[in-house]
Every structure is written in structure tokens, then in C-alpha cells.
């Protein structure tokens, strides 16, 4: 009797959990679904009252318009700025992190100062940076935006990579030193391969930071290096909003991040918790 009852109870609980999981997922994904769906709708379908939940057909004219009008250049700008800046931040930050982790350079104070840089709210520095950029003619330049994102990503990279490097057994490096490598070679041939998962995960987050940033891009770009979030806000008008463009642009701007994060899912938790949870 009891033997047959127990699995039945377990099955019921499992069914309830699937139901809960389904409802939660539905709630959280519905807005994303709505966004995707609008990007495939024709104007008639978008401005239909009551709203249509399923487009009549999947058609790509909203995307086509973005390409035709050159709006996708904003995506390209974002791609350039985000990848170059996170590349530089990763290399410089990891080297710095190695020094902090292995030689204790600057002591605990330097490490604390670096992470405190991460806590500075962008709004507090964006204005003076803007004034300085105007002075040096860096506004609306790739260099200016890349420099800024590099600087804002560096504390994060240093903090995260320091954690990953500390996890590398010291003996691996010592063994390489005895075997005939110099310090530079040790970093390149032993440390970098050992922290490669950490490097990849951290790059996803630095890339995402630069990719998703709006405030700096809003202030420091004009026409040439407009990034996609800034471009997106241009579609909002006082009276009429260009829903089709907003939706299509949003989808384009979400896909790269979603792909990167899906690949790196394993490291997500350590990354977003600033290393507090080693997932």
C-alpha cells in the first residue's frame, strides 16, 4: 500500500513543480516573446486593436529596413567598441591581477582601491569625463569610447581574474620556473592556459557591460560611433513610436549577448556575484 502511494505522491509533486516552472518561465519570457513577435509583424499587425498575439506570417522587412537605412551600423559600432575594449581590459587586467595575486603588489590597499573603482556610479564621473573629452576632442570617437569602457571594465577584470589566478596551484608555476621558463613565459604558457575558462567568462561580462551601456554612449557619442542602445532611444518619438524598428533593433542587440551568455552559463554565477559565489 505505502509502496505504491509514495511514488504517486512524488509524481504529483514533480508535476506541480513542472507546472510552477512552466508558469514562471512563461511570465518571464512573455515580454521577450512579445518583442520578437513584433519584430516580425507588418505595420498593420503592429497597430492592430486589439493587439494580435501571433503574427500572420514571419517576415523580415523590419530588419531589412534597418539594414537598408544603415541603422545596423550602430550594432557594428557596439560590436567594435565592446570587443576591442573588453579585449584590452582582459589583457591588461589579467596581467595586473597576476601581479596582485602572486606578488601582493601594492598590498591589500591597492586591491581595495581597484574594487572601489567599480563601485563609483557612472553618473558621478560621466560629466567631468565629458568635459575632459570635449577638451581633448575625444567625443564621438572610437578611441574615446573604447578607452572609457576599458577603464570601467578593468576593476572588474582585475578583481575576477585575481580570484581565478589565486586558484592556480603555485607549484605549477614553480615547476615551470625550475624547468626553464622565465616569468613572462610562465604567465603566457602556464597561467593563461590555466585560467582560460575564467578569461572567457570574464570577457563575456566585460563585453556585456560595454554592449549594454547606455549612459556613457549617450553622452560621449554624437553621430559617428552611436551604439545600439542610443540608436534604440532615437526611435522613441513624442507622438508616434517606431515600434517595428524598436523591436527589430532590440532583437539584434540582444542576440549576441544571449549567445555569449548561453555558452558561458556555467560561469555566470561566479561572474555576476563578483566572485562571491563560486558556482
Amino acid at each position: 500500500m505505502r509502496v505504491s502511494k509514495l511514488p504517486a505522491r512524488k509524481a504529483r509533486i514533480l508535476a506541480l513543480r513542472y507546472l510552477g516552472a512552466g508558469v514562471v518561465t512563461l511570465l518571464f519570457l512573455f515580454p521577450v516573446y512579445w518583442l520578437f513577435m513584433i519584430s516580425f509583424k507588418t505595420p498593420d499587425e503592429i497597430y492592430h486593436v486589439p493587439p494580435l498575439w501571433i503574427p500572420g506570417q514571419i517576415q523580415f522587412s523590419n530588419y531589412y529596413v534597418l539594414f537598408k537605412d544603415g541603422d545596423v551600423l550602430a550594432i557594428l559600432n557596439s560590436l567594435i567598441v565592446a570587443s576591442v575594449s573588453s579585449g584590452i581590459a582582459i589583457v591588461l587586467g589579467t596581467l595586473c591581477a597576476y601581479s596582485l595575486a602572486r606578488f601582493g603588489t601594492g598590498g591589500e590597499n591597492l586591491a581595495m582601491w581597484i574594487i572601489s573603482q567599480r563601485m563609483i556610479p557612472p553618473i558621478a564621473v560621466v560629466f567631468p569625463i565629458f568635459l575632459i573629452y570635449v577638451y581633448f576632442g575625444l567625443v564621438d570617437s572610437y578611441f574615446g569610447l573604447i578607452l572609457l569602457y576599458t577603464a570601467f571594465n578593468l576593476p572588474y577584470v582585475i578583481w575576477m581574474m585575481r580570484g581565478y589566478i589565486v586558484d592556480v596551484p603555485l607549484e605549477l608555476e614553480e615547476s615551470a620556473l625550475v624547468d626553464g621558463l622565465n616569468r613572462w613565459e610562465v604567465i603566457w604558457k602556464v597561467v593563461f592556459p590555466m585560467v582560460r575558462p575564467g578569461l572567457m567568462a570574464t570577457s563575456v561580462f566585460t563585453f556585456a557591460f560595454a554592449w549594454n551601456d547606455f549612459l556613457f554612449a549617450l553622452v560621449l557619442t554624437r553621430t559617428e560611433v552611436i551604439t545600439f542602445p542610443v540608436m534604440l532611444t532615437h526611435y522613441f518619438g513624442g507622438q508616434s513610436n517606431f515600434w517595428a524598428k524598436i523591436a527589430a533593433m532590440s532583437v539584434l542587440g540582444t542576440l549576441p549577448i544571449f549567445v555569449a551568455v548561453s555558452v558561458m552559463q556555467r560561469y555566470l554565477v561566479r561572474g555576476i556575484s563578483l566572485g562571491a559565489v563560486k558556482g
Binding site: 607549484e171 615547476s175 625550475v178 621558463l181 622565465n182
Partner: peptide, 15 residues
């Protein structure tokens, strides 16, 4: 430097 001493070393955790 260690590399200049022409020695070989075996570590506790094998390294």
C-alpha cells in the same frame, strides 16, 4: 634563477 641551476624537481601534488 631556478631555470639556470639545471635542476629538476618533483612536487608533492605532481604539478
Amino acid at each position: 634563477r631556478p631555470r639556470e641551476r639545471n635542476i629538476a624537481m618533483v612536487f608533492q601534488n605532481y604539478a
